[in-house]
């Protein structure tokens, strides 16, 4: 047995997928969202390597929209996945009750 097989994950793959997807999307949305303000061009006196793109309103806008799409993807994935698996764990009567609760 190699080391990798001994590793125990606390969370199943779909959860880890959603967790990191949402985390990266939100961080990038914050960074590029700030980039839509006239901030980086003025205050970044020393331009750290690889951050020049942050001073372009055009590029930060594209990246912002990109991560808006990924955040929407991961959040709907999260909701749909858990609703579907949750319903399937219920008994027949409970499933009926759950669905009818929306109609009451």
């Amino acid at each position: 047995m190699n080391k990798k097989k001994n590793k125990i994950y606390r969370q199943p793959l779909p959860n880890r997928f959603v967790h990191w997807g949402v985390a990266i999307s939100i961080i990038m949305l914050i960074i590029t969202g700030i980039g839509q303000m006239p901030v980086y061009g003025r205050y970044l006196i020393v331009q750290p390597f690889g951050t020049k793109w942050l001073t372009s309103y055009e590029i930060t806008l594209w990246v912002h929209y990109f991560f808006a799409a990924t955040l929407l993807f991961f959040t709907t994935y999260h909701i749909v996945y858990h609703v579907v698996t949750h319903i399937s764990h219920l008994g027949r009567a409970e499933q009926k009750d759950f669905l009818f609760s929306f109609l009451e």
């Binding site: 779909p14 929209y65 994935y77």
Partner: peptide, 30 residues
């Protein structure tokens, strides 16, 4: 410069549908 972002706006409309579809497939498999 706004012209190129219109495609990205479309992506934000498709993203939730793709997310729901991917979740459905994974849930089914599990």
């Amino acid at each position: 410069m706004l012209e190129t972002t219109h495609g990205y706006m479309l992506a934000t409309l498709i993203a939730p549908i793709a997310g729901a579809a991917a979740a459905g497939i994974t849930a089914y498999k599990v």
